[in-house]
Design a protein around this nucleic acid. Structure first.
Lengths: 237, 237
DNA sequence: ATTACTATGTTTCGAGTAA
DNA sequence: TTTACTCGAAACATAGTAA
C-alpha cells in the first residue's frame, strides 16, 4: 500500500482522480489543457505538464490533436485508484469511537506504593520508564466511561507476567499506554487480582500525577488510550 | 467533492491518510516527527511542518510532549477521508468496459457522398466540423465488436433531426463522437433508415479517412467512443 | 483554436542548529 | 532524545510566446 505511492506523485494522483471524474477511466476523453488546468486550479501550462507526467508514469494514454488532448486512464492508472480506494476503505471500516474515558480521582487502599515497588524492575523493562511508586485511582465517571474501560480491557495489552519475588508469588497484570489529560504519558494497569471493581482504573506514570496535574479527590480527568507501534518490542536495558 | 480539495492540500491529505493508517482516526497516536518523516519519505523538518499545517487546517489535534508529538484526526479531517473515499467509490462503480470496436473496411453503395452533401449544413452545425462528403463503412470484425456497436447505439447521441430539403424529406440520424485509430476525430453516424445491417457502422470525419489513414478494403481499424461534455450544446454559427 | 517551450517567480524542502 | 527555526537549494507554477 504505502509502497504504491511515491510522494512526488501525490499531485499527479489527484489529477488522475479528476480525469476519472471526467470519465477517462471508461473511454477516451477530450481534455484541453486550458480546461483541465481550470479543473485542477492550475494554469494551462501546468495542466499540460501534468498530462505529460501522467503519461510518463504510465497512468494514462494521451493523444494530442489539433482540437486538444484526448486521454484515457490505463489499467496501471486505474489500479492506483483502486489501491487508494482500498486503503481508505480499510481505514474507514476500522473506525471505532475514540477510546477514552473520564474518571473521578479517589484515594484507594494505599497498596499501590508497595506493589509498584515489587514490580518495579519488570515494569521498567516492559514500559520503558521507571514508574512512580503509587497508582492514581480513577472511578468511571459515567456509564459510557465504564463501557470505554471495558473496551480497553478487551484489547491486546503489554503483558506483565506473574513471577516470584521476595518469597511470594506475584500475579500477572496487563498494561495499556495512555495519555492523562492529553499531557502526561502513563499506563493503565489491570492487575490479575485487584481489590477494586471493574469501574476502577489504576494509572501509572513516571511522576506523581496528583502533583504534576494538581489533582485532588473528586477531580474528573480524561484518560485516553495511545498506541505506539513498538509497545511490545520496546524492552531496553 | 471537488470543492472539498484545495490543490495545496494534496500532500497534506496524503499525510492524513498515513496518519490514519497509524490509527490516528481512532485515538491519540504517537508520531515523532523523525519517524513520521521517514513514513512520508520526507525530512524530520518537513514532517514537523506538515503536522503543524494539518493542525492549522483543523484536520488533526496535536499534542507535543518531550517524547514526541501525539496526534489524532479530528471529525473534520475524518470527513475529508470519507469524501475522498466516496469520490473514488463513485468512479470505480461506474467503470464499464471501454467502448470501442474493430471494424473491417469495405466499399458500400456509394450513397454516402450524396447524403452527406444534403445534410452538410446541419451536420456542420451539430458536429462543429465540415464533414468530408462520404462515409467510411465498417463491418464489425467479431461478435464482440457487434455487441460494442449495439452498446454504442443504446447511448444518448447527438441528434440530427429529420427535415425537408430539395423537395424531399430527409430522415433523422444520430451521431456519436469517435476517435478512429486513436488519431482522427470523427463521428459514427446512425441513420434512421439505412441499407446496411446492424453489423455496419458508418464513420464521418472532416477529411477523407481512406486517404488520411492509408486504408483499403479489408483493413481492420479501431473506432472508439469519445466523450466531450459539450457534445450536445455545441451548436456554433 | 490548440500544446508546450523558455525564462522567471514562487513555493516547498531539508541541512544546520537552537531550545 | 524531542520540536521547530533560519535560510540556501531544489522543485514547482506560470507568463510570454512559438508552432
Amino acid at each position: 500500500m504505502a509502497e504504491a505511492l511515491e510522494r512526488d506523485d501525490y499531485g499527479l494522483l489527484f489529477a488522475l482522480i479528476r480525469l476519472a471524474e471526467l470519465g477517462a477511466h471508461k473511454s477516451l476523453v477530450k481534455v484541453p489543457t486550458e480546461k483541465f488546468g481550470s479543473i485542477l486550479r492550475l494554469s494551462q501550462q501546468s495542466a499540460s505538464r501534468i498530462l505529460r507526467l501522467l503519461e510518463q508514469r504510465g497512468w494514462i494514454e494521451r493523444f494530442v490533436s489539433r482540437e486538444g488532448t484526448y486521454a484515457r486512464i490505463t489499467n496501471g492508472g486505474f489500479e492506483r485508484l483502486i489501491g487508494l480506494h482500498r486503503d481508505l476503505a480499510r481505514i474507514l471500516e476500522s473506525r471505532i469511537e475514540p477510546i477514552a474515558f473520564r474518571g473521578i480521582v479517589f484515594t484507594g487502599f494505599g497498596e499501590g506504593n508497595y506493589y509498584v515497588k515489587l514490580y518495579r524492575r519488570v515494569l521498567r523493562d516492559k514500559l520503558g520508564f521507571d514508574p512512580y511508586p503509587g497508582t492514581l485511582n480513577l472511578r468511571a465517571a459515567t456509564i459510557e466511561d465504564l463501557k470505554a474501560l471495558e473496551r480497553i480491557r478487551s484489547l491486546p495489552a503489554i503483558e506483565i507476567p506473574s513471577f516470584k519475588g521476595r518469597g511470594r508469588s506475584l500475579g500477572s497484570a496487563r498494561c495499556y499506554r495512555v495519555a492523562v489529560e492529553h499531557r502526561v504519558r502513563g499506563v493503565m494497569i489491570v492487575p490479575e487480582r485487584t481489590h477494586y471493581g471493574r469501574d476502577v482504573a489504576e494509572i501509572l506514570a513516571a511522576e506523581r500525577l496528583r502533583e504534576k496535574l494538581g489533582l485532588k479527590d473528586g477531580d474528573i480527568i480524561t484518560v485516553e488510550l495511545t498506541f505506539e507501534e513498538d509497545s511490545l518490542s520496546k524492552a531496553k536495558g
